[in-house]
Write a protein that binds this DNA or RNA. Structure first.
Lengths: 191, 191
DNA sequence: ACCTGAACACCGTTCAAGT
DNA sequence: ACCTGAACACCGTTCAAGT
């Protein structure tokens, strides 16, 4: 006789995201997740292939949410203002979900990573704005400059790696201003 | 009767670094390290406090080595050339020891991290060069821009996160040029 | 169809016992 | 003084057995 489902992939992923933020990636055990959704650990394997798969589902959700936020931030139509707003949205997201954000860029096995299409969607906004600033020929190079800087800055900030004093918010402002100014003044190969 | 030591902290750390690069952080188990140095796992606890402490010792060695390399790279006396050379040395190191490099910037428990003084030493070169370019008032902000970009770029490159095509080497060149140009042209508060 | 207890192969770590 | 086997508390994962 079929028994009714006592949980769902959605419930599992949601619980896992909460545990990830509260207790880190090593704290994210199958037993801990099972307890949170009210089943025994082996039952989770009816919904997710294994722990790596669960991590991948978390990253998918994270990438989707990040993508939406970046999209929403680019609303003014002015590429300089928009790029700054997108960077700030990126930072706000990283501070809200530090563990999930870290996971998105962590050197994790390939099969744990968010689906390529979701990463691509999140990148699209930045590539578009970077192209408007630096010209279509340089769009990808420029986007990589912006994303690398922002990701590096935030991973260092979240890891507490800025230990030489100074104002970290000011360093962030300095960075985004230097980068946008540089992209705008760069000679374009063609327009 | 005292028995002669069959291994040493140095041998343990050296073996651990090799294992880290070959099999990643999850592959770095106490049993694996013990096997490599020819003792049983419990014996390791005579030399290192626990696995986290072993990771910290690896990071210390990594930070020391990175620091030396960056120092050696800054030799021309011209800050623009030196900053480029330091960035290139940073990248070369990251590619030689990707796992150790990743570890240095990974969101890992505080007690696993390299000693503060070693991180400070590695940062010093960059802060000096950044100050020569952007002025002493902006040295720290400028150094944070450079290091954040480089670290982010490399962590993305090593994670295989540049998946939109284009030439990654060219993106690196584009980045360091845009950043140095921007720092040089930035208005200085004072000289 | 879904859930579970029991089991397996692995971890890190402690500790009494050996030399 | 150093090393080890045995043990403990944890993991992820599989699977036969239950409903």
């Amino acid at each position: 006789m079929p028994t009714p489902a006592r949980t769902s992939v959605q419930a599992i992923v949601t619980a896992a995201r909460t545990i990830l933020e509260a207790e880190g990636l090593e704290g994210l055990t199958m037993q801990r997740v099972a307890q949170a959704v009210g089943v025994q650990a082996p039952s989770l394997y009816k919904r997710v292939r294994d722990r790596g798969d669960l991590v991948r589902l978390i990253s998918n959700d994270t990438a989707r949410e990040l993508s939406e936020r970046l999209e929403r931030a680019a609303a003014s139509g002015d590429p300089v203002r928009d790029l700054r707003a997108v960077a700030d949205a990126f930072r706000a997201f990283a501070r809200e979900r530090p563990a999930a954000f870290g996971l998105l860029f962590a050197p994790v096995p390939e099969s744990w990573r968010a689906d390529e299409a979701l990463n691509r969607a999140a990148a699209a906004v930045v590539v578009r704005l970077a192209g408007e600033l630096a010209g279509p020929e340089r769009a990808l190079d420029a986007a990589r400059l912006v994303v690398a800087w922002a990701q590096g800055f935030l991973s260092m900030e979240l890891a507490g790696a800025f230990r030489l004093g100074g104002d970290v918010d000011e360093a962030w402002q300095f960075g985004i201003e230097a980068i946008t100014a540089s992209l705008r003044s760069r000679p374009r190969r063609r327009t």
